[in-house]
Design a protein around this nucleic acid. Sequence first.
DNA 1: CGGTATTTATTCAAATTTCAACTTAAATGG
DNA 2: CCATTTAAGTTGAAATTTGAATAAATACCG
Lengths: 158, 158
Amino acid sequence: METENGARWLSDEEQRTWRTHLEVSRLLTYQLERDLQPFGLTYNDYEILVNLSEAEDHQMRMSDLARATLQSKSRLSHQITRMENAGLVRRENCESDRRGLFAVLTDYGWETMKRVAPHHVAAVREHFIDLLSPRELESLQAALEPVAKHLRATRGRA
Amino acid sequence: METENGARWLSDEEQRTWRTHLEVSRLLTYQLERDLQPFGLTYNDYEILVNLSEAEDHQMRMSDLARATLQSKSRLSHQITRMENAGLVRRENCESDRRGLFAVLTDYGWETMKRVAPHHVAAVREHFIDLLSPRELESLQAALEPVAKHLRATRGRA
DNA sequence: CGGTATTTATTCAAATTTCAACTTAAATGG
DNA sequence: CCATTTAAGTTGAAATTTGAATAAATACCG
């Protein structure tokens, strides 16, 4: 099963799996976004909150946050500006590197996180985790981790 | 393992799998987008081309295309306008329902599709399919299909 | 040290996406 | 039939995202 220039097409099984994966990715994002709407947060907002919540002193360098959330610096900068306006985070200067800035979780941001997280987790369960058996969960992780590893590497050497 | 208001947190295993899935989704989209760049197409463009290519007479009603690609009608409308300007598709009136329009693949769109598809498929292989054993592929499909089904249903009754 | 290259982060403009308002046509139901 | 509701699709403005250009500070190297 070859294309004219030698590339191999996908078998039916491969194609089915590929499309299912794509569909799940998209619908899941879409659904989680929707489940956050009542709290006035986008998924992007939430992701920033998670990262800052888990970080030492509830703060991270802009660069690191951009890397962690897979966003461009420019995009993160805008994103943080918006969240700053919403009172969720603030920027703070970095002593040791005067080019640098920290994004810091505000008290309100932290309160918001604590309030919203349980609902978000419930949504993740409802739409993903609880639909998988322990065995399926395990094989999913086993299958996807190498893919993640590959993609991280590929992205890196861009 | 309960939150204050009764929601169950994720176990380490669950969390790891969840995050891996998220990461793969994102990096994969990102990578495929990048692999299409040399051809001057976005992933959205490509997806439209795929759908039209597989459709009867290389044409689809705007609504159906929007549904198939999980986009809003508005977004699709803009998208098609852009692709029309690029010469990849054209709009055509629908006889039987005079509100309706078809998006139709142009010759150039079809040529483009035939030219680009092998490269795209190769990318899908390189970054996903070929990293999975047949067994993993199978279990992935088995695990994700019910999730897809659930999400389709959930989305529907929105 | 002094100059050049990198890194960090922001900004502006252009492209894309979203959202609500609108138009036109078809379906529904007294 | 007519009136109303629903469906198909577009439009324009606002919000977000992208990408190149910029500014400022640090790192590197002869």
